[in-house]
Design a protein around this nucleic acid. Structure first.
Length: 848
RNA sequence: GCUCGGAUGGCGGAAUAGGUAGACGCACAGGACUUAAAAUCCUGUGAACUUCGGUUCGUGAGGGUUCAAGUCCCUCUCCGAGUACCA
């Protein structure tokens, strides 16, 4: 027999909450708001994973607790339902992705409800519904219709872009605008996967490669978004948010700010200049050669006649290599001399210009000044091709052999002087500044900040994504749809296979690529690319504040009510989104902020990552290992309250923790003990529960429990909160007659963790109102103060005795009392006390 | 390679500002109840030695600071995550 009838009571209360509308919320100016959000799931065909309830329970506990504390709590859920797995399922089965998505969402919802999560389902969103993606499209167009004003460091409407007087032709003006839009079309090499029939984002490539798919580089016309314009703000605004340190670090690394200089090198016997970026302008005297990326545009112009063939064949070879091959497979650096020379502006010496694929075209200027003495990569290359290595930075008090290895740390500049500039003897940071001053005064170069962050590739050749609401005309012009034309709804198709031309399945739909535009009367075709899956998740948290609005994505007042002053109060989700989703969403939010649509510069005030739940065998759960735990099975065997409490009890929320069947049985036993504390064998409220005063020991345990549970919920330390509740139950199980008041207070502590059993027992105790309508109990500090404690007596820092003593005595009294102890006497006997260390309420230490 | 985390009984994990290491749970052992089992309740449980009162050792390894170190400092080993020629 089950330890308590969880099946009936869980079903009963889930129905009750739904009927009563317990979890519905609306704006209430009389209450402080609290917005707690889970990263919404992708509704896969496999259903809920056992890891999902971990983060969801954590936020549910916080939501229920905050509600009991008098907050107006927004705790919504929805589905990030566009995505490749569904589209692939449709290709195989012919079932429309919208149907598959609907079924998957129904299953997910059933499972989420089964866990007793207090979501306001009236606010549910689904990124694939036209009335949702209408606004995703609208926001894309907002980005498209924006340019970045460097002076005010923010986005402005494209109509406010100053057009230079020299540009008169309307087509030229359009072109000028297009160049400045935050969303633009570009012909760029992308990661093309033939088998999937789509391009992939850089970050998606490895994932598919691991699964055995081939990904190649191929230039294609793509939509790009200038997220790079926000590099600095994305970096500095990390100071505004309360996020895990490591996540902030990852974002910082991803944005990758480098401070340095851009320097122009003249090409000998030519009008061409090679612009390089360097973080070490102080080493310019040590630049003994230059390297261009194979794709660099100047390569063709400067290559000498003699070297032309060799250079061309090298470029061809490099272009065939993927990024992966360029890095991992070729540890050995390769390169080739162009036959051309540049003039080092500091030394005025001729230095050879090489091409090598260790220089990346897409970072900096795609060219470098090579300083083999002080850069490991340049050093390796110089050794291989026998290029000169000069020491221009010295390590203090050390004779570094520069031929053997590069010295890359800061040091003191040497061999670095010409007629106008000498930095000899200066430490690196000063040498940098002085060199930059000279570069700027001579117009050779300038200070420059460089970021690693690249523009965001925003188009995918898929059917199951948001259509990009732009149409193209035969004359080469294009038009973005107006708000009254949105949403641009995906056309019905029955064949989800890619077009085979590198375009999405939409390219096969005649009504999509061959129609007459109603507004202009011109023959037109829609963009056939769709948006990446990240798009819908960039703003879903805003839609929850006003999910049904058809005039705007969210009413300004409602957005302000829930998002002010610092954004979402708690955002819970996996660390796998530490960079991409969180960076894209922050960017998206900032564009909305610049246009005045949202009230905060950052969307997520506090972020927390729940850890992975791994298999019972300590390995990651996977079908092939056969160690997958299904939430449906667990709920049916132990109940939702057990799975909730167990996942919280397993260990610290942010840690990876192994599942344990014995462990959940233990938690289920604990809930059974709670049940039997109140309900007797005959299913009645126990006669042992009486309205009697607590003993001081019971008061101590109750108030400690209230304190511990409330503090632990605030700090997301749920595992220790559960421990404390177990201590409570152990203590009160001991008592023959149980004080009712204590038990009721305890139930309120337990309620956020195990809502069903708490509601049921609360009702059985004669309450007609939901337990969640009660204020969370407060503890009385005076009840937690003990009058007597176990006092530790040490001799020479070793524990020799423990004595029960009053807490409020003077040191001398403790000395007197503790010195009477036999064991203490034994260890002190015959020796002299040199020193006494006294820690109030804890210990006394005699040094002899 | 670099950047972050982490290492505590047989297991998951506790231990506010350095001050009783191992809370709580699991597993295990013994007992009560039972014809028996399950369930439940009670007791014990870091290791070694022990004259059963204790003694010594013990938080990945080695050093250091301190009356006192899981906690602070240095060096190292192993594990996990992210990133990868970013000039």
């Amino acid at each position: 027999m089950a330890s308590y009838p969880f099946k009936e009571i869980e079903t009963k209360w889930q129905e009750q909450w739904e009927q009563r509308g317990t979890n519905l919320v609306s704006e209430d100016k009389n209450k402080p708001k609290y917005y707690v959000l889970d990263m919404f799931p992708y509704p896969s065909g496999a259903g809920l994973h056992i890891g999902h309830p971990e983060g969801y329970t954590a936020t549910d506990i916080v939501a229920r607790y905050k509600k009991m504390q008098g907050f107006n709590v927004l705790h919504p859920m929805g589905f990030d339902a566009f995505g490749l797995p569904t589209e692939r399922y449709s290709m195989q089965t012919g079932i429309h992705p919208a149907i598959a998505t609907k079924n998957n969402i129904e299953n997910f919802k059933r499972q989420l409800k089964m866990l007793g999560l207090a979501y306001d389902w009236s606010r549910q969103i689904n990124t694939t519904e036209p009335n949702y993606y209408k606004w995703t499209q609208w926001m894309f167009l907002l980005i498209y219709n924006s340019w970045f004003d460097e002076n005010s460091n923010k986005a402005r409407h494209i109509n406010e872009l100053p057009i230079p007087d020299s540009i008169k032709d309307p087509l030229e003006i359009e072109k000028y605008k297009d160049e400045h839009r935050l969303a633009y079309l570009a012909m760029i090499p992308v990661n093309w996967c033939e088998a999937l029939g789509t391009v992939l984002a850089n970050e998606e490539c490895d994932e598919w490669r691991e699964k055995g798919y081939e990904v190649e580089r191929k230039p294609m016309r793509q939509w790009m978004i200038k997220i790079t314009k926000y590099s600095q703000r994305l970096l500095q605004d990390l100071d505004l948010v309360d996020w895990p340190y490591s996540t902030k670090e990852m974002q910082k690394n991803w944005i990758g700010r480098s401070d340095g200089a851009e320097i122009n090198f003249k090409v000998k016997n030519s009008d061409n200049n090679i612009l390089v970026f360097t973080t070490r302008p102080d080493t310019i005297f040590g630049a003994t050669y230059m390297v261009l990326a194979p794709e660099h545009e100047l390569v063709k112009e400067i290559v000498s006649v003699e070297e032309k063939n060799k250079v061309e064949s090298y470029i061809k070879q490099a272009s065939l290599k993927s990024d992966l091959e360029r890095t991992e497979l070729s540890k050995e650096k390769t390169g080739i001399f162009t036959g051309a020379y540049a003039i080092n502006p500091a030394t005025k010496k001729e230095i050879p210009i090489w091409i090598a694929d260790y220089v990346l075209a897409h970072y900096g200027t795609g060219a470098i000044m090579a300083v083999p003495g002080h850069d490991e990569r340049d050093h390796e290359f110089a050794l291989k091709y026998n290029l000169p290595i000069i020491k221009v930075v010295e390590k203090e008090n050390d004779d570094w052999n520069i031929t053997e290895s590069a010295f890359t740390d800061d040091g003191i500049a040497v061999n670095s002087a010409n007629d106008e500039l000498s930095i000899n003897g200066l430490p690196t940071d000063q040498a940098k500044d002085k060199t930059i001053e000279w570069l700027e005064s001579t117009n050779i170069g300038s200070r420059k900040v460089q970021y690693k962050l690249r523009d965001w590739l925003f188009s995918r050749q898929r059917y199951w994504g948001e259509p990009i609401p732009i149409m193209f005309f035969e004359d080469g012009t294009k038009r973005a749809l107006d708000l009254d034309e949105l949403p641009l709804v995906l056309p019905e198709v029955s064949d989800f296979k890619p077009a085979g031309t590198g375009e999405s399945p939409l390219a096969k739909v005649d009504s999509w690529i061959n129609f007459i535009d109603k507004k202009t009367g011109k023959k037109a075709r829609f963009e056939t690319n769709t948006m990446p899956q990240w798009a819908g998740s960039c703003w879903y948290y805003l839609r929850y504040t006003d999910p049904k609005n058809n005039e705007i994505f969210a009413d300004k007042e409602k957005e302000k009510y829930w998002m002010s002053p610092d954004g979402i109060d708690l955002y819970m989700g996996g660390a796998e989104h530490a960079v991409l989703h969180l960076l894209y969403a922050r960017f998206w939010h900032k564009v909305l902020f610049d246009h005045g649509y949202v009230s905060t510069p950052e969307p997520f005030k506090k972020l927390f990552h729940q850890g992975l739940i791994i298999g019972e065998d300590g390995r990651k759960m996977s079908k092939s290992l056969g160690n997958v735990i299904n939430p449906d099975d667990v709920v049916s065997e132990f109940g939702a309250d057990s799975i909730r409490v167990f996942e919280m009890f397993l260990g610290p929320l942010q840690d990876a923790k192994p599942w344990s069947t014995d462990g959940i049985a233990g938690v289920n036993r604990f809930l059974g003990r709670v049940w039997r504390l109140i309900i007797d064998k005959d299913d009645n409220v126990s006669a042992d529960l009486q309205d009697i005063p607590m003993t001081s020991e019971q008061e101590f345990v109750l108030h400690s429990t209230i304190k511990k549970v409330s503090e632990d919920i605030e700090n997301l330390h749920f595992n220790t909160a559960v421990s404390q509740m177990m201590i409570f139950v152990n203590e009160f199980t001991k008592a023959q007659i149980k004080p009712l008041k204590a038990i009721e207070n305890f139930l309120m502590c337990l309620a956020p963790f195990a809502p069903h059993i708490s509601e049921e027992l609360w009702e059985k105790l004669g309450h007609s109102e939901s337990i969640f309508n009660n204020p969370f109990p407060k503890y009385d500090d005076s009840k937690i103060q003990k009058k007597e404690i176990e006092f530790v007596v040490q001799v020479n820092s070793k524990i020799r005795a423990r004595m029960m003593l009053p807490v409020d005595l003077e040191q001398v009294e403790y000395e007197k009392l503790t010195l009477t102890d036999e064991s203490v006497q034994k260890h002190i006997a015959g020796k002299q006390i040199r020193k006494v260390i006294f820690v109030p309420k804890k210990l006394i230490n005699f040094i002899v």
